[in-house]
Amino acid sequence: MATHSSHSRPSQHSQTFSAHFDTRGYPVVDVRTGYAGWVERYEETVEDLMDVDVLASLAVPRWHEAVRAADLGCGTGRTGAWLRGQGVGAVDGVDLTPQMLERARARGAHEKLIEADLAHTGLSGGAYPLVVTSLVDEHLPDLRPLYREAFRLAAPDGLFVLVGLHPQFIMTAGMPTHFTAADGTETAITTHLHYVGDHVAAGLAAGWTLAELREEKVGDAWVARKPKWERYRGVPVSAAYVWRKIS
């Protein structure tokens, strides 16, 4: 899960998670503080089933054809390493949290790493056949700046692939993004709800054309990994959107 910040006004449909659906009652910290505290155990706790396995299931992206990708909210470099493993030529990463970038730098999957807000990455416009964001959107109060920046970065006919927690799962499980702090305290990171329609509206407003939409449900693989999730069987846990920049 990647880190970032947004100072934009929240969209009409954005809801701060804890105000409506939180059944856990964990103390809440901001995104940069949260991921700085989570970095030591992040790789141990994030499941590939949540994001990279969903990316692998998509039909539209031809990963190996991308000579360069922008990895927005690159975190520790998990997504960047996966992209390189699929044959992407080079990957540039952006994240807000220095500690996560330090891990990504040590991993070595990225050609360039930048500490920046995802709404203003500082990367070159029109330079990326592929833009990817993984496990990021629930931390943004407003989706629109992310979609606009991704559109600016994308080359003509380029793709923007976004995968994240499905809003239905967040509401059903009553579970914000959270981690176990060094002192053992379960700690939530500021989480926002964005419905599928909010993504569609933000993407279309930025100029994107929707090419693929996938909702991945809790099934046998998830229950085998987390037996207590049997009660969530059939609930969509991840959502993936593939957008194309029509030239």
Rank of each mutant, 00 (worst) to 15 (best):
V136E: 06
L118T: 09
A106I: 07
H120V: 15
E149H: 00
D71R: 04
A69P: 05
D142N: 15
G122Y: 03
R84S: 05
H64D: 12
F151I: 13
L118W: 03
G85H: 04
V67D: 13
L146M: 11
R78F: 04
H110D: 10
A155F: 02
D95P: 14
R68D: 05
P129K: 03
R78I: 12
G75P: 07
L130P: 04
D95G: 11
L83T: 10
Y128M: 00
V132Q: 00
H110G: 08
L118G: 15
A106T: 10
A106R: 12
A155Y: 04
H64G: 01
A90P: 06
T121F: 04
P98W: 06
K112G: 10
E65S: 03
H110S: 11
V131N: 01
R84H: 09
H120G: 13
A109K: 06
A106M: 06
R84T: 08
A104R: 00
V132E: 02
R148P: 08
A150V: 03
L123T: 09
L143D: 02
D142M: 05
V91D: 07
R78D: 05
T133D: 15
P156V: 14
G125C: 12
R68L: 14
L130F: 06
P141Q: 11
F151P: 11
R152M: 09
V67W: 04
A109D: 03
D95N: 14
G75N: 05
E65D: 14
R107L: 14
R78Y: 07
A155D: 10
P61C: 07
V91G: 10
E115F: 10
A106P: 10
G126R: 09
R105A: 15
D92P: 13
T79S: 06
E111G: 14
H139Y: 11
G93K: 00
S57P: 01
L58V: 00
I114R: 06
T76Y: 01
R152E: 13
G93S: 07
G75C: 07
A70H: 09
V94I: 12
T76G: 14
D92H: 06
T97Y: 12
W63I: 00
V132R: 00
S57I: 02
R84M: 07
R68A: 15
S134F: 08
P98G: 09
T79V: 15
E115S: 13
H110A: 11
H120F: 11
E102P: 07
S134M: 03
D137C: 15
L58H: 00
L140Y: 13
T133C: 13
A119I: 03
S134Q: 09
A70L: 02
R105I: 02
D95T: 13
P129V: 00
D157Y: 04
G75A: 11
L58M: 06
S134P: 10
L130C: 11
Q99V: 15
A127V: 06
D157G: 05
A104C: 08
L143Q: 08
L83P: 05
A116V: 02
C74G: 07
A69F: 03
P61A: 06
R107K: 13
A81K: 10
T76F: 01
D157T: 15
V91T: 07
R84Y: 00
E149Y: 01
W82S: 00
P145V: 00
E65F: 05
R107C: 09
F151M: 15
A90F: 12
